[in-house]
Design a protein around this nucleic acid. Structure first.
Length: 213
DNA sequence: GCCAACGTTGGC
DNA sequence: GCCAACGTTGGC
């Protein structure tokens, strides 16, 4: 069986504004916005603030084994550390909003590595962007669980970035509200539970094209 | 394994 | 372009 490494999502993790507006994409993206403002972003309501860059992103992956179409989805931060150079491509994102976030990422920016779908969901460490968005090759691979027949080489639908391990957190930051407000969480800029990216995580991280068999 | 929240699809 | 039905996610 092919090796694993499947990531799901990406989103801004700072509490800042903008970026959720004016995405280039059509249909799906706009629908998201129209439908559920609450989940579309953690921003405060004013849309008038100048566009600012996110410096922290939230990138989510599953650290525990889960088989999807014969492929193991497991890819935790330890798996990233085990890669050559501690680098890996962040493929498998099949959500327009998350994809658009991927496309906004710049080399050098950092992201929280979030462990999802596991015993203890939360932030495990910090990674950084080492290569900006380029076509996700798994969309063309018919054997891949994230194969997308509607995409084409000429006009790829899905993107990925490369990330590199930076460091573990001194202390694992679980999802729970209380813990999300610890000093370490604040220290790394983790937004309070109410406004934080985790709040949006379902919206941002869903990978609708990933179908289980 | 449940189920609420979420995203997508397709009929109209 | 609305919206109900359906599939998926993901914390619990």
């Amino acid at each position: 069986m092919p090796q694993s490494k499947r990531k799901r999502g990406a989103s801004p993790a700072t509490d800042s504004k903008e970026l959720n507006d004016k995405k280039e994409d059509s249909g799906a993206e706009r629908k998201v916005k129209g439908r559920r403002k609450a989940a579309a972003s953690g921003r405060s309501d004013s849309n008038e603030k100048p566009k600012e860059e996110y410096h922290f992103w939230l990138m989510k992956s599953e650290p525990e084994s889960r088989i999807e179409k014969g492929m193991d989805m497991k890819f935790g931060i330890e798996d990233l550390k085990a890669q050559p150079d501690q680098r890996a491509c962040w493929d498998g994102v099949r959500n327009y909003q998350a994809r658009n976030f991927l496309r906004q990422m710049k080399v050098g920016q950092e992201a929280f590595f979030y462990h999802s779908n596991c015993k203890e969901p939360g932030i495990a460490g910090i990674v950084k962007i080492v290569k900006e968005a380029y076509p996700d090759h798994t969309q063309f691979d018919t054997k891949n669980p994230h194969y997308d027949a509607s995409s084409s080489q000429e006009n790829p639908k899905w993107s990925m970035v490369d990330v590199q391990f930076v460091r573990m957190l001194g202390r694992y930051i679980p999802v729970g509200r209380a813990e999300a407000d610890t000093s370490e969480a604040q220290g790394i800029g983790w937004p309070s539970a109410k406004h934080g990216a985790l709040y949006q995580s379902k919206a941002v991280h869903t990978a609708p094209h990933a179908r289980r068999v």
